[in-house]
Design a protein around this nucleic acid. Structure first.
Lengths: 213, 213
DNA sequence: ACTCAGATTGACTGGTCAGTCAATCGCTGG
DNA sequence: CCAGCGATTGACTGACCAGTCAATCTGAGT
């Protein structure tokens, strides 16, 4: 039980609790699990949870804010790259989000199910942060519109919502186990979602080139 | 209070409870409201709720199944129309869903927030019904693919998820009050979502005609 | 050895609420 | 006028659980 590293890393109990919460929230849902479930999963006494967090809700808020900020930063960084086409940037954004799910499906499940889509509780609380993500994507679209690469009659905010909505629906498919969770599927989805949203579902009339890679 | 129609319509208390539940679930969320809130809103005694429904959950299940079936039927009916292009069919589907929200925002909010996106509770329970909606949309896309009107390299199930995801994201925008809830906006969204998904965000290279609606 | 502070423990409390149930109401038919 | 039955009432119960707190532990400083 004890004895890992005496000084350098004395087992961060706070981190342990956060990680346990991800597992438990993902498995049973925020509302259907008890704080004691989190404590048990972390192998920690009940009361310690309240030493590090003021409430059950604060655990979820912490998980969301930590991860969401990483995503916002990633979107901003992608947007800032020079000499990259909009389609490629959107591919990178889709890739980042999908890889986030691939890397830690439980955390992304919790964030999407319990925060992003919770219109009456956490979603409302974090509305501004959620909107920042739309805005980041919209900025990419806006540049492409200004350059004439994207249609001018679809507002960039609207385009961003469609794009983000499609991705979140994909994640939902994986969360609900409607879609296969294989590496091949994740990679395929990245390309397809960008092709569907940027290129559209309709066949090109004639001489339009299809990008494949 | 009494005296509307002595025999034909003696005030359907069951309906009253369902309608009250929509209001209350939408306002506070399923988990954050009490059965007594529903009873109060309906102007009915607490116990009567349990005369008509076996549990709080059964109320939500009933609301979902009632409305979802209407939508499934509508999609099937739209798909069955002869001599209608895929883009037009998808416009009708988007229109139906958006009008459903316009007509009864509370009900749609409850269905989306509490069922469609609830991966740990009701969503899982009604997964099959939810998938039927994807399948209905996919059927429309599949026909268009077979006729060559839609790209063959985007699977119809995948296209359906993108399309449905985009629409649900729009509804979420209205639910969260990120988007304006005006008739003009609802109508505009119908056209834009179809243009974005079918036509894509990218500008047509050259000789492709843009349909305005 | 001793002290102090922060970490850790888990039993306990206070409040909430879903679901039950025995009693009452009010209509319909005899 | 009465019996019978479904509709209706609302007080009550049993369980559950978030958050509290006083006690204990640990380890660094002196």
């Amino acid at each position: 039980m004890a004895a890992t590293a005496p000084k350098g890393a004395p087992v961060d109990k706070r981190r342990l609790i956060l990680d346990a919460a991800v597992t438990v929230f993902a498995r049973r849902g925020f509302h259907h699990c008890r704080v004691s479930d989190v404590a048990d999963e972390a192998g920690v006494a009940y009361g310690l949870v309240y030493h590090y967090f003021s409430s059950k809700e604060e655990i979820l808020n912490t998980l969301f804010l930590e991860r969401w900020q990483v995503m916002l930063d990633a979107i901003a960084e992608i947007d800032s790259r020079p000499n990259v086409e909009a389609r490629e940037k959107l591919y990178l954004v889709a890739g980042f989000i999908i890889d986030s799910y691939r890397h830690d499906p439980d955390l992304m499940k919790v964030i999407i199910v319990e925060v992003t889509r919770a219109a009456n509780s956490f979603g409302r609380l974090h509305l501004e942060k959620i909107r920042e993500a739309y805005a980041g994507i919209a900025a990419i679209v806006e540049t492409a519109r200004a350059e004439g690469a994207f249609k001018s009659d679809i507002p960039s905010e609207f385009a961003a919502m469609c794009f983000y909505g499609a991705i979140e629906q994909l994640l939902t498919g994986w969360i609900f186990e409607v879609l296969d969770r294989t590496d091949a599927e994740f990679e395929r989805a990245k390309g397809l979602v960008v092709e569907a949203i940027c290129g559209g579902l309709e066949s090109a009339p004639a001489g339009a080139a299809a990008t494949s890679g």
